[in-house]
Every structure is written in C-alpha cells, then in structure tokens.
C-alpha cells in the first residue's frame, strides 16, 4: 500500500519547527521508522509531515557534570556507537544496540521513540528507570516532564497539540550504582513481550524498578529496594500493582524482573 497524499515540511532549526507547528496541525517525524510504515498501511493519514531530522538544536548532545542532555533527534545508532556521550558509562549504549535492527537504529531517534510511545519500546522503559527528564517546547515556552510521567497509555503521551520534544536529560548515576535491563524477545529486532529496567542507586536515592511491554504505560514498581533485595518477589510486586493482570503475563514479566536483577548482580561495579 502507499500513503494518502500529504504535505511535507522540512525544518532546519527549532524556530522554523515551532513556527510550522504554530501555523497548522502537523505530525512531527524524524527517523520515520514507525510513522512511515503506518502511513504506508494508511493507518496514519497526517495532512502535514514536519521533518525535524535536520533541526540543529535537536541533533546535539550536551554533557555537564551531572547529566547528558540528548537532542530529540539523536539516533539510536549515535548512542550505540558512542558518537554522543553516555551518562551511564555504557548502559545506554548497550540498550541502544538492541533496539530493532541496525537499519532502524540508523534512522530512528530517542525522541521519536518516546513520542510514538509503543508500550514495548526500549527507551519508553529504560529512560524512566534512569530518572530521565524530558523538555517539551510549546506555544507557552518550555516545560519539563519526568520520563515516568511522559507516556500515559499505549501510543499516548502528555504532548499537547503544537508541542515538540526538544531534549531528554539523563542524570549520571553514582559510582556505586548498578543497572539491569532485560527484555524477552524471541527474535532479534522484534518488540519485546516483557521487559524490566532496574537502577539500584542508593547514593542518589534514585533506585527504580520499571516494568515495560505491558500494553500500557511503563509501570513504576513500589518499594524498589525491597524488590532489588529480594524481600518482595516480582510476581507479588506485579500482582499488587496490577491486580487484574492475567497470570501468564504476570509470570512472564516477573521473569523479566528476576533476570534484570540477576543481570545487575552480575555486572561489574
């Protein structure tokens, strides 16, 4: 199938992008790895496509003492390859290297993946676990949203019409922090059936257990320290958080939590 007719706008800087957004309803696109196929299937029919893949401000990554701020149009491949700094000393590079296939990673972007908000997408799970913060530009200026609050349902975010994600700031974990990210995919490149991302960082108080691929927004598990220490098992934590979850799904996601913890225990300090 081929897409229905659409207009194409190409922004070279943030001002052009914001002006375009102010003037009309646009679908923002960069790598076009999710919207493109949906357009080809005629499931998505945007009247105007605003391409931000060349917007200079969105293509940068800036490192400070405390964080790295990724422009929304930084690609998965740039993170995987270390072309941009990794605030986590390799955890983000590892996560990026397992997103879909290299061809997708060459084009797909961190901001695009978040905005598409596929419940099974990697960044949608990983970034909340790292306590990332998302900067959103809109008609009323820039606002910041914690990654855990950004996705509000399957393919749904807090973005209002006319808003655009500008950057994603990921704080640097402490030297003692440990990390585990595990996802269940049968095949390389497919969306996961279950995933869990865990940061154990007592020095900063940012320890988190996030469960993904639930068909909804990522789940922030209560009492992460107890889960990480094994005082609460994954099944119990999931059943407590989502009492209506089917038993088979609980089992699979509990395995994801267990294996993310195992992986964490095994990772070098």
């Amino acid at each position: 199938m081929k897409p229905v007719d659409f207009s194409y706008l190409n922004a070279m800087n943030l001002e052009q992008a914001e002006n375009a957004l102010a003037g009309q309803s646009c679908s923002i696109v960069s790598g076009n790895q999710s919207l493109g196929p949906m357009m080809n299937l005629r499931l998505a029919r945007p009247g105007v496509l605003l391409d931000v893949s060349r917007v200079e401000e969105l293509r940068r990554a800036e490192e400070t003492d405390t964080e790295v701020r990724f422009g929304a149009a930084v690609t998965h491949a740039e993170i995987e390859d270390g072309t941009v700094p990794d605030p986590t000393g390799g955890w983000m590079r590892a996560a990026a290297s397992n997103i879909a296939h290299r061809a997708v990673r060459n084009r797909g972007t961190i901001g695009g993946s978040l905005c598409h908000a596929d419940p099974a997408a990697d960044w949608v799970t990983v970034l909340p676990a790292l306590s990332a913060q998302i900067s959103i530009a809109g008609p009323d200026g820039v606002r910041k949203v914690d990654a855990i609050d950004f996705v509000v349902g399957p393919y749904a975010t807090v973005l209002a019409p006319g808003e655009i994600v500008v950057s994603v700031a990921v704080p640097k974990p402490s030297a003692a922090a440990r990390w585990g990210y595990w996802k269940f995919v049968r095949q390389v490149g497919e969306f996961s059936k279950a995933s869990a991302a865990i940061l154990d960082d007592p020095d900063t108080g940012r320890s988190r257990v996030i469960v993904g691929a639930l068909g909804r927004q990522p789940l922030l598990i209560d009492k992460p320290d107890d889960v990480i220490a094994g005082r609460i098992d994954g099944k119990a934590a999931l059943s407590h958080a989502l009492p209506d979850m089917p038993a088979c799904a609980v089992r699979m996601h509990a395995v994801a939590i267990d294996r993310a913890i195992e992986q964490m225990a095994g990772s070098p300090e």
Binding site: P37, Q187, V188, G189, E190
Partner: peptide, 13 residues
C-alpha cells in the same frame, strides 16, 4: 497483516 505479526525466521535465529 504485517511482518511485525507474521514472524519469519531471521539470521540470528
């Protein structure tokens, strides 16, 4: 209805 749902074997399998 797409290859995301119809799983073909890939090299890594």
């Amino acid at each position: 209805s797409t290859l995301a749902d119809y799983h073909l074997p890939v090299a890594a399998d």
